[in-house]
Write a protein that binds this DNA or RNA. Structure first.
Length: 594
RNA sequence: GCGGGUGUAGCUCAAUGGUAGAGCGCUAGUCUUCCAAACUAGUUACGAGGGUUCGAGUCCCUUCACCCGCUCCA
């Protein structure tokens, strides 16, 4: 639970973000709109850096991952196949007495006697309330307690001395219509579909309904065949995509953490089913220890690939300045997993408002491609020459064993999806025979991260207050955002020591111009030098370059005395300065910000 | 959506139903040889809409947003 102190910290971060132009409320001049946020100048740079680092790490720097940029609106059948149309809606009920909210499907089943009432009358004023109500009592409980609860209900509707009207009793078995805590009747389940609906084309009828994507991942599955055929990639390989996604959240909360429009960085990494790995390499490697398993090997099954990606993703977060101590891994328990998932790890960040998820890395079996194969009628499997050759060379009993295991897995999936026993059996047999011929539907490991929550994590992690007492004894607290140079919105600020000395100003301007093509640089000559440093600290700029008199007159003291054309570099986190030649400035900066 | 709380300048906070103010910030200028210096001038607000009242930042209603809880997830 969030302590008051932590709320104060969130308020400070929120206020800084607005003051410095990281994050603004969307549509603020019209009163704002719930669950939508804009990035200001510094926020836009920060976000761009984060996305570029992810894209570079997850695709460009890897031989085995390619990119995709799909549309936000796709064929609505995609969301039926993915399950979002059905399962993305959570029917909710409210307790009529206490207003507490329940997920309709998670209420425990109860049995007993339901006491129904048609309404109630105020014996003092004669006022009548006609509104049906009911209370469930466990068998054997005295009816008086039901009447007491009902009286409370009608009292809330403005009656003083309640006389209940039209009591009837009915036996109830396994009902989810009553509050397990007090027996009060609940409101009828109200469905919430979290997908934003829209209409494609001019007519806006039910037939034109489409949805804004609630995740970017499904496009990767839908385009799997095209990407596979055009990218010259072989399984195992991955497809990465970044982009906006939309969820009509019941309650957006915690600043930008849960927004209705947000951005995801998702990657589907397609791997062979374990049976295929075993056929080719004789045995599937088992995880030896916790931690990074090293370079990918041909004998890796889903477990090692999953572990590999968990570690790779944590390495990424560490590389952009989130220390491992600020992160947590949460391995979902078997009973928490979605029915198709074999494992799921959440990478959590310790936010000021609680430890919350940044990214989920799920081993999703072959569920998604199988679903799209079933629903679209298009084959999603791939052919693997190496597998066919290897399978043919296996001893017959090994062949049978692998086919049986693949058959069992396919049968389980098909049965779960409601395919009739006869059809499922035949289809699973076909799949098992296909495996022997080198065909299979790839399995997938899905690291799925939220950009906006990562931005928030970076801001929270970078936020530092420094209290300093000056020579006059006046103490002042200022904010330093200790961003990793790789993500910092402004990499370097170029400052003339004094504004009114033309040679300093011109030189600073020239240095700034020479840097801006390579990185986000900033030029500032207004105010005292200390004030400008402080401004940059608040923006999280890691380096300030200052042009001073020694730039022209030569270094005064020390081993380099007399050397000209140098500048000072001032470090954000400790205020220390070093002096380097202007000719070396660009390479010096580049190695630190890339 | 329900319950509780909060809305005054970019930020932090004032103003008994009677002329909306301060500090910081920001902009311009003077000055200034390294950590929010000084001086001068300027800048900007009652979340929105109704109502009560001679008069509303203040009282009432509606609405919007934010924070906390229920709920949910990237």
């Amino acid at each position: 639970m969030a302590e008051p102190k932590e709320n104060v910290l969130m308020e400070k971060i929120t206020s800084l973000c607005k003051r410095r132009g990281f994050i603004f409320q969307s549509s603020e001049i019209y009163g704002g709109i719930q669950g939508f946020w804009d990035y200001g100048p510094l926020g836009a740079e920060l976000k761009r850096n984060v996305k570029e680092l992810w894209w570079s790490t997850m695709t460009r720097m890897r031989d085995d991952v390619v990119g995709l940029e799909a549309t936000i609106i796709m064929h609505p059948a995609i969301w039926r196949a993915s399950g979002h149309v059905d399962t993305f809606s959570d029917p909710m009920c409210d307790c009529l007495l206490t207003k507490k909210r329940f997920r309709a499907d998670q209420i425990e089943f109860q049995s007993g006697n339901a006491y129904h009432y048609a309404g109630a009358k105020d014996t003092a004023t004669g006022k009548e309330v006609v509104e049906p109500y009911a209370v469930l009592l466990a068998a054997g409980k005295p009816p008086e307690s039901a009447r007491k609860t009902a009286a409370q209900f009608y009292a809330q509707r403005g009656l003083q001395t309640v006389e209940l009207i039209g009591e009837t009793v009915a036996k109830v078995e396994n009902s989810q219509r009553f509050n397990p805590e007090n027996g009060s009747l609940l409101t009828p389940p109200v469905p919430f579909n979290l997908m934003f609906k829209t209409y494609v084309g001019p007519t806006a009828t039910e037939a034109d309904v489409a949805y804004l994507r609630p995740e970017t991942a499904q496009a990767i599955f839908a385009q799997f065949k095209n990407v596979h055929e055009t990218s010259r990639q072989k399984v195992p390989f991955g497809v990465a995509q970044m982009g906006k996604a939309f969820r009509n959240e019941v309650t957006p909360r915690n600043y930008t953490f849960r927004s209705r429009e947000f951005e995801q960085m998702e990657r589907e990494f397609f791997i062979k089913p374990d049976e295929a790995v075993e056929a080719v390499t004789a045995a599937v490697a088992t995880p030896a220890a916790k931690g990074h398993p090293g370079e990918p090997q041909p004998n890796w099954g889903w477990q090692l690939w999953h572990q590999y990606w968990v570690e790779e993703r944590i390495k990424f977060y560490e590389g952009i300045g989130l220390p491992r101590t600020t992160l947590e891994e949460y391995w979902q328990k078997p009973e928490e997993l979605a029915h198709y998932a074999r494992a799921c790890v959440d990478i959590l960040f310790k936010f000021p408002f609680g430890t919350q998820e940044l990214e989920g890395i799920a081993a999703r079996s072959d569920f998604d491609l199988s679903q799209h194969e079933r629903c679209s009628g298009k084959a999603m499997g791939i052919f693997d020459e190496e597998l066919r050759t290897a399978f043919g060379k296996l001893p017959p009993q090994k062949q049978t064993e692998l086919k049986d295991r693949y058959y069992a897995a396919r049968l389980k999936y098909l049965t779960k999806m409601g395919v009739s026993a006869a059809e499922a059996g035949a289809a699973a047999q076909e799949d098992a025979d296909g495996l022997a011929k080198g065909q299979y539907i790839p399995h997938v490991i899905e690291p799925s991260a939220g950009v906006d929550r990562l931005i928030l994590a970076l801001l929270a992690n970078a936020f530092t207050e420094v209290t300093e007492t000056d020579a006059k004894g006046k103490s002042e607290t200022r904010v330093v955002l200790r961003f990793h140079p790789r993500v910092a919105p402004i990499k370097v600020a170029v400052l003339p020591l004094l504004k009114n000395k033309p040679e300093l100003a011109a030189k600073a301007r020239a240095i700034f111009e020479s840097l801006r093509g390579h990185m986000m640089a900033f030029h500032d000559e207004a105010g005292s030098i200390g004030r400008r440093y402080a401004r940059q600290d608040e923006a999280g700029t890691p380096f300030c370059v200052t042009v001073d008199f020694e730039t022209f007159e030569g270094i005064k003291d020390g081993p380099q005395a007399g050397v000209k054309d140098t500048v000072t570099i001032r470090h954000r986190d400790d205020g220390k300065q070093e002096r380097i030649a202007t000719s070396e400035l660009l390479p010096w900066l580049l190695v630190r910000v890339k």
